[in-house]
Design a protein around this nucleic acid. Structure first.
Lengths: 229, 229
DNA sequence: TACAATCCTGACCAACCGGTCAGTTTTGGA
DNA sequence: TCCAAAACTGACCGGTTGGTCAGGATTGTA
């Protein structure tokens, strides 16, 4: 993955001050433009999906002529990939707390809270990801089978270890992850349904907090997590 | 909603034998063709979304020339609407068991099992619905705010009643529904992710049963549902 | 058999979309 | 100030898409 991320990392990693400064001076226009296009693209792709989005629509949202988009991102697919890469890095984050020496209640509860926060603050990213998945994950199938699987395998071992220690029930950790992911992302992906059923026009912070508390409680009790004193 | 459903219902409701038979004789070609187109459209819309799907693709899948599609469904949007209507009737079903005089464990457990079964047998319908929701539910916003909301309000009162009777914890029933819907639909909508993480190429019946059992157990324990003797 | 009504279809069209390109403007270092 | 590299842009193009239409083929009935 991620030409763009690799490049960003490289730039920040370079410590030869003169060279780095020169690069930054020469390329700050590029970075600013890419960021602007990127933000516009995320919004448009989230609302319309890959095929529904048009380059002119993204260009308008970014306040640039269409030809300028093609100067920075050669094709629509390349731009989409860049946006997708961004969501994947978000997706992998926040599992740090799930460690063998952590308290299960705190670790799992913290993970759910973090996921829910991410869903609220990065709604468009969540939708882009969901859209990609819905259409069979043609661009990121390999990532799912390697990086994501490896991460989930590792974290599942931690949870199974907790169960063996008697800190919680014996459960299938992978399906627990599916449930947590689904239950949190639904507040971004299915927002129209949530709002309609609640009779509101938008999802308030308070409502999301309420949902978070209930989900944490249900999962922890549902998995028989003992509260450590 | 649903010209098509209204018509189908009318046809079956008519008991004036001669008239009904005449209609059926005259229109059986129409019904057969519509059904074939409908099935093909559901598959294609599920895989590609509204904008990604093309009329020629649907025509090929149905084994008909494109112009014939436009004879039965004037526009692409009309065909999409018809498919969407079908998923909505599925969505409303299966809540019958949630009644005041039912046993909470059986009713909720049965509902989750039914939803999971529906997810497995109507994968494409689930995906079409998810796609519509992701894009802001432009075609069905009104349905969500009226019919779906009314149903959920009613069933939520039942669950709150159970809680007051001490049969389970006091919870927000609406958010419980969101969690159940999300956790079940994820096995259709996010299938690529589920398969990748599990290291399988397809979702087996056994794996879905396993997921169902765990979800039922977690929800029932998580909501403190007492098991009635 | 006759004859409407319905069904079916190849050929066509205007609109739109992703992408290109030649040429102009801006930028920043020497 | 000069100049090469980078940034920018209007105009354009080939391909695809949803949708139309005139006319031919089927169907069911009287």
């Amino acid at each position: 993955m991620t030409e763009s991320l690799a490049r960003a990392e490289a730039t920040h990693a370079v410590t030869d001050a003169p060279v780095a400064q020169a690069m930054r001076r020469k390329e700050h226009i590029r970075y600013a433009a890419e960021a602007e296009i990127f933000a516009a693209a995320e919004t448009v792709f989230a609302r319309a999906g890959f095929s529904g989005a048009t380059m002119s629509e993204i260009a308008d949202a970014a306040g640039l002529p269409k030809a300028n988009l093609h100067y920075y991102f050669r094709t629509k697919a390349a731009l989409y990939r860049a946006v997708l890469d961004h969501t994947l890095t978000l997706w992998l984050a926040e599992t740090d707390g799930i460690r063998v020496d952590a308290d299960p209640a705190e670790a799992l509860g913290g993970y759910i809270r973090a996921k829910m926060r991410l869903t609220a603050t990065h709604r468009d990213a969540s939708r882009v990801f969901a859209n990609e998945m819905l259409h069979g994950a043609p661009h990121i199938g390999n990532y799912l089978r390697t990086e994501l699987k490896a991460l989930v395998d590792e974290k599942s071992r931690v949870i199974e270890h907790w169960a063996q220690q008697g800190l919680m029930d014996e459960i299938d950790a992978r399906h627990l992850f599916f449930t947590i992911w689904a239950a949190t992302q639904t507040y971004a992906d299915f927002q129209p349904q949530v709002c309609a059923v609640l009779g509101k026009t938008r999802l308030t912070r308070a409502e999301l907090d309420r949902a978070t508390r209930q989900l944490v409680k249900m999962v922890l009790r549902g998995c028989g997590v003992r509260v450590r004193k």
